[in-house]
Design a protein around this nucleic acid. Structure first.
Length: 663
RNA sequence: GCCCGGGUAGCUCAAUGGCAGAGCACCCGCCUUGUAAGCGGGCGAUAGGGGUUCGACUCCCCUCCUGGGCUCCA
C-alpha cells in the first residue's frame, strides 16, 4: 500500500502510510483527537472513521462534542435502541430512527399490535447497555436495490424506503439516486442486527452509553394519519455523562418556567374542567396583566394610525361561505348553531370577513387608502382534542388582529411599515433576537395568478431583506390566498417562537368583491394585509411568562410593590406610603402585620414582587422606606419615598430588560 | 382523532384490596414582629358513572379532564 497525502482544515497536509483510514489520520494527529473522533468529513461528505482516504483528499475529523458529532452519536444510539427492541420483541418491524434536536427516536411496529409501556423503557435500556458493553462494531455494507430488498424481506417499512430510493420518489434521496450504482448502504453490528442507513456511525457501540430513554409515543408512519400508527421511543444521547446531566438539567429549568405552572403559582389563570379543554379563565392578576399588555398595544396602534373596530363572535354561515372558510377551514371551526327556522350561525375562527364588511360599509376612494383596521378579536377554533396545550394552543383566544387594505402602489410601503411596527412592539416587550421566515406558494392548493404570486412573494422578500434580519425560506408554507412573513423570536433560554405574521392576500378582497374608486374614476381591487402581532394575547402572555421565568419587568407586573409594616402601629404610615405610590400611577398593596415580617417577605418574594417595601419606626420618623428589590443582593434602608417613586417610574418607563435568573 | 402516561383537600405529595394522612393555602385564636417560613386550633379530598369483591384510592369497563407524542425524512 502506497503512502497518501491528505489536506486538513487548517491547510496543512499529512502523510499516511499503510492504514489510510480516517481513524488512522486522527490517531496520527493526536491521541486526544483519536479519542474524541466519531466520524470524518471527506471532500464535504460525512464518512465513517473506517473509510479509506484517497490521495489528495480534504479531510476533517468530526469530534463527539460538536453538533455533527452528537448527530452521529444519537443516530448510532438509535440503532442500538432498535437492536435492543428486536432482541426483546422478536418479529418486531422497525421503521425509521433519526437523530433529532437533542436526541433521537425510533419507530416500531410490534408483533401482535403490542404497545410499549413506560416499564418497557427500563428493559430496553438494560438491553441497550448490554449491547454497548459488548462493544460491537458498526460495519458498513453497500448493495444493489434488489439485494437490499432481499436483506429486508420481512421489513415492509425498510422495503418501502428502498423502493422510494429506487423510484426516486423521495425528493431528498434524489442526490443519492444520481450515484452511478444507486447503491443502498446498511450497517450491521453484531450478527443479529442490520439496519438501512446512510451513516456515518461511531466505530463501535462501546463509544456510546451517555443516553436516556425519555418517553414512548404513538407516531404515524411518515407522519400520515391514514398510515399505520407506530410505536415511537424517544431518547437523548450525549458525548459524556456531564453533557447528558447538563441537558437533563436544562429540561428541568424549562419545566420551572412552564407558563402553566407559573400561571397557577402567580394566580393568573386556570383551565377549569367545568369549562372544557383549551378554554382559560383569567383571574384578577392575570386579567390585570392582560389589560396592561392590551392597553399598551392599543396606544401604540392608535399612534401608528390604526382604526379601532369591533365585530361579533357569531355570524350567519353565508359570511364564511363567502370568505371561503367553510371550504378551507371547516375542520378548524366549531359546528354551527341552528337558529330561527334553520338559519346556521357559526362561532368565528377569524376576524377578517368582518373587517371586509367594514370596508364595504360605504364607498371608498383611493384617497381613503390605506384603511388599517385593528381589533382584539376573540375567536374560537375547534382544535383537535390531543393538541391543546396551556395558553399556547387553545380553543378560544383573542387575536390582536389587523387588516390593512391598500392600493397596489402602497403595498411595499405598508408592508415595510407594518414589519417595523411589529418588531418595535416586540422589542418593547423585551424580545430582541429575531429572524424572519418567508412562506411561499403552496403548490397545488393556491388561488390567484402566477403574476400575482410572483409579485407578492418578491415584494415580501424585498421587505424582509430590507429589515436586515436573517431570512429563512419556508417553501410552500404560505396560505392558499397568499404568502407571508413570520417573525420568529428567540427567548431567554434560546427557544424560538413564531410570533407575528404578516400575510398578503389578494383572494379575500375578490371574494367579497370589495373595491375603491381610483383617480381614474374606475373600480379597483385593494390589496389586503393580514397581520397578527402577538398572535394571540394568551399565547403571547405565555411566551412572556416563560421568557422572564415569571419575573415580569416592573411595567408589566400586575403588583409592582407591596408595603409591609413591621408592627401594626405602622399601618397608618404604610397606607400613606402606598397612597403616595398609587398617586404616581404605580400598582401595589399593603400586607398588614398579622404575621411576622419574615413570613410576609417570603410570600412577597415567591410572588416575584419587583419591590418589597418594609416600613418601621425609623421610616415613620424620617419619611422613608426599606426597599427590597427583586434580584438585588441586600435590602436598602432609609430610602425617601419620593426617591423610590422616581426610581420605580424610571424603571417602568424603561420597560426593563429580562431578568434571566432561574427564579 | 390516535398511541403511552396521569387524575387523592385550593396547591404539592403519602396510603399490600382492609380506619384516607401530611405540609402549604384558607378560617379562628395567641404572638407585635426590621428583610425568605412564629405558635396552637379548625375547615377541607379519592374526577364522574358502572362492574368484580365480604370489603376498592388500589383491579376491570365507559366518560370527562390532564401531561408527552403524531413534518423533523434509511
Amino acid at each position: 500500500m502506497s503512502a497518501i497525502t491528505v489536506r486538513l482544515p487548517d491547510g496543512s497536509t499529512k502523510e499516511l502510510d499503510g492504514d489510510v483510514s480516517a481513524g488512522a489520520l486522527a490517531r496520527s494527529i493526536g491521541s486526544g483527537l483519536a479519542r474524541a473522533a466519531v466520524a470524518a468529513v471527506v471532500n464535504g461528505t460525512e464518512v465513517d472513521l473506517s473509510a479509506e482516504l484517497a490521495d489528495g483528499a480534504e479531510v476533517s475529523i468530526v469530534t463527539a462534542a460538536t453538533p455533527a458529532g452528537r448527530d452521529v452519536i444519537r443516530h448510532s444510539t438509535a440503532h442500538v435502541l432498535a437492536q435492543a427492541v428486536l432482541r426483546l420483541w422478536p418479529g418486531a418491524r422497525y421503521a425509521i430512527g433519526p437523530a433529532i434536536e437533542d436526541g433521537f427516536y425510533y419507530d416500531f411496529e410490534l408483533p401482535g399490535g403490542a404497545h410499549f409501556s413506560d416499564d418497557d423503557l427500563v428493559r430496553i435500556d438494560a438491553a441497550m447497555r448490554e449491547i454497548i458493553a459488548e462493544d460491537q462494531s458498526f460495519v458498513r455494507s453497500e448493495q444493489s436495490i434488489d439485494d437490499a430488498l432481499g436483506v429486508f424481506v420481512d421489513q415492509p417499512f425498510k422495503r418501502e424506503i428502498i423502493e422510494a430510493v429506487r423510484d426516486g420518489a423521495d425528493e431528498h434521496d434524489a442526490a443519492q439516486s444520481e450515484d452511478a450504482d444507486r447503491a443502498i448502504s446498511a450497517y450491521a453490528n453484531g450478527a443479529d442486527f442490520i439496519d438501512l442507513c446512510r451513516g456515518p456511525h461511531v466505530p463501535s457501540t462501546g463509544r456510546l452509553g451517555h443516553f436516556k430513554l425519555t418517553r414512548v409515543a404513538g407516531a404515524y408512519w411518515r407522519g400520515d394519519e391514514k398510515r399505520p400508527q407506530l410505536q415511537r421511543i424517544y431518547g437523548t444521547a450525549w458525548e459524556s455523562t456531564k453533557a447528558l446531566a447538563e441537558y437533563l438539567n436544562r429540561l428541568e429549568q424549562a419545566e420551572r418556567r412552564d407558563h402553566r405552572k407559573l400561571g397557577a403559582e402567580l394566580d393568573l389563570f386556570s383551565f377549569p374542567e367545568e369549562i372544557g379543554p383549551g378554554l382559560a379563565i383569567f383571574h384578577p392578576k392575570g386579567g390585570l396583566l392582560r389589560k396592561i399588555i392590551e392597553d399598551y398595544s392599543r396606544q401604540r396602534h392608535l399612534d401608528a394610525g390604526y382604526q379601532f373596530v369591533t365585530s361579533p363572535h357569531i355570524t350567519k354561515r353565508e359570511l364564511f361561505d363567502t370568505s371561503g372558510h367553510l371550504v378551507w377551514f371547516a375542520e378548524g371551526m366549531y359546528p354551527p348553531m341552528v337558529l330561527d327556522e334553520g338559519q346556521e350561525y357559526y362561532l368565528k375562527p377569524m376576524n377578517c370577513p368582518f373587517h371586509m364588511l367594514i370596508f364595504k360599509s360605504r364607498q371608498r376612494s383611493y384617497r381613503d387608502m390605506p384603511q388599517r383596521y385593528f381589533e382584539f378579536g376573540s375567536v374560537y377554533r375547534y382544535e383537535r382534542s390531543g393538541v391543546v396545550h396551556g395558553l399556547t394552543r387553545v380553543r378560544g383566544m383573542t387575536m390582536d388582529d389587523a387588516h390593512l387594505l391598500c392600493r397596489r402602489d402602497q403595498m411595499h410601503g405598508e408592508l415595510t411599515r407594518t414589519l417595523e411596527f411589529v418588531l418595535d412592539m416586540l422589542r418593547a416587550f423585551g424580545l430582541s433576537e429575531f429572524y424572519l421566515e418567508l412562506s411561499t406558494r403552496p403548490e397545488g392548493k393556491a388561488v390567484g395568478t402566477d403574476a400575482e404570486w410572483r409579485e407578492a412573494e418578491s415584494t415580501l422578500r424585498e421587505v424582509a431583506t430590507a429589515s436586515g434580519l436573517g431570512l429563512q425560506d419556508d417553501p410552500g408554507g404560505g396560505a392558499f390566498y397568499g404568502p407571508k412573513i413570520s417573525v420568529q423570536a428567540r427567548d431567554a433560554i434560546g427557544r424560538t417562537h413564531q410570533l407575528s405574521t404578516v400575510q398578503l392576500d389578494f383572494q379575500t378582497p375578490q371574494r367579497f368583491d370589495v373595491a375603491y374608486i381610483g383617480a381614474d374614476n374606475g373600480r379597483h381591487r385593494p390589496i389586503m394585509i393580514h397581520r397578527a402581532l402577538f398572535g394571540s394575547v394568551e399565547r403571547f402572555l405565555a411566551i412572556l411568562l416563560e421568557h422572564y421565568a415569571g419575573n415580569l419587568p416592573t411595567w408589566l407586573m400586575p403588583e409592582q410593590f407591596r408595603v409591609l409594616p413591621v408592627r401594626d402601629d405602622h399601618h397608618e404610615y404604610a397606607a400613606h406610603v402606598a397612597a403616595q405610590l398609587h398617586q404616581r400611577g404605580l400598582r401595589g398593596t399593603l400586607d398588614e402585620a398579622s404575621e411576622p415580617l419574615g413570613g410576609r417577605i417570603r410570600k412577597a418574594k415567591l410572588d416575584k414582587l419587583p419591590y418589597v417595601l418594609v416600613v418601621g419606626d425609623d421610616d415613620v420618623a424620617h419619611g422613608t422606606v426599606g426597599v427590597n428589590r427583586r434580584g438585588g443582593s441586600d435590602p436598602e434602608r432609609g430610602v425617601a419615598v419620593r426617591a423610590l417613586a422616581d426610581e420605580m417610574d424610571a424603571q417602568v418607563a424603561a420597560h426593563g430588560a429580562p431578568e434571566t435568573a432561574a427564579d
